[in-house]
């Protein structure tokens, strides 16, 4: 076994449940009937969480990370942006071959979904999803349009800040994570009940992407940087495992 394999297959760092949102968050009404009331049964990770599905570059299509063109081949309407960053673990190491999937509303704040009845129109050239595999240093990149803010039924006048949904896999199933990226300077972030399911301000800030003028392309598009951090893994070489495991 090589050292890098040993690192990648070690037990997972335990999740900091005070950093993540709680399950039961009355400001976000739907959570009130979908949150478990009994305590989670907590124990260290096992092989079932330390292993996970592997994805390869062969399954990624040429336009999969280009949401401006990947629906019809004709460009979607909206503010053109690059969304880029690295997938890291809690030790700060880039994690390669991570499947990053994103989905979002169009520039007017409307989703291509039968349950979304918002009055902003669909863009015939915007599907709203994309995917990419992180590179050797954990880096990933999408080209898309900045999604619009939109109202949602919770309290009477709640609006979601502009956001992109993000789903990531690590090397272990226990690292599976879904989160959302927000945009620097959006005044709706502080007013959003879903954002505010997160208790700590520093944790909220970890989901706000700064404008990155160095990655913007003059006369073409702006850029936002968003690093994604997965649960860390201990080095398995010193773990007390029985022979043959």
């Amino acid at each position: 076994m090589t050292l890098s394999n040993a690192i990648d297959s070690g037990p997972l760092f335990s999740r900091d449940r005070d950093w993540h949102p709680a399950a039961y968050t009355p400001g976000y009404k739907t959570s009130m009937t979908r949150a478990p009331f009994r305590p989670l049964v907590a124990l260290g990770s096992t092989l079932s969480e330390e292993t996970g599905p592997a994805f390869g570059q062969s399954m990624i299509g040429r336009l999969d990370n280009n949401l401006i063109l990947n629906f019809t081949g004709q460009p979607a309407v909206g503010e053109r942006i690059i969304m880029h960053g690295r997938v890291l673990d809690e030790q700060g190491r880039g994690v390669p071959n991570v499947l990053v999937e994103i989905w979002q509303a169009n520039a007017g704040g409307r989703y291509r979904h039968k349950k979304d009845g918002y009055l902003a129109p669909l863009d015939p050239n915007f599907g709203g999803c994309g995917r990419a595999l992180s590179g050797p240093d954990g880096s990933y990149e999408f080209l898309t349009v900045r999604p619009g803010a939109y109202p949602w039924p919770n309290h009477v006048n709640n609006w979601r800040p502009m956001h992109i949904h993000i789903s990531v896999f690590g090397s272990g199933f226990g690292q599976r994570l879904i989160t959302q990226m927000y945009f620097e300077g959006d005044p709706l972030i502080a007013r959003c009940p879903i954002v505010n399911t997160i208790g700590q301000q520093k944790a909220i800030e970890a989901l706000v992407a700064p404008l990155d003028m160095n990655r913007a392309i003059p006369m073409d598009c702006l850029a936002y940087k968003f690093d994604i951090v997965l649960r860390g893994r201990r080095q398995s070489v010193f773990e007390n495992r029985k022979e043959g495991m």
Binding site: S31, Y111, H113, I178, I198
Partner: peptide, 30 residues
């Protein structure tokens, strides 16, 4: 110098757009 795991946010009501677009009827992308 550890980083913190990215905090989770709900998958929301439109998770199928991102993860199972064909089953939703959004065909042609994957």
């Amino acid at each position: 110098d550890y980083l913190k795991e990215s905090p989770s946010q709900t998958a929301g009501p439109y998770v199928h757009i991102g993860l199972t677009p064909n089953k939703l009827g959004n065909t042609g992308i994957y």
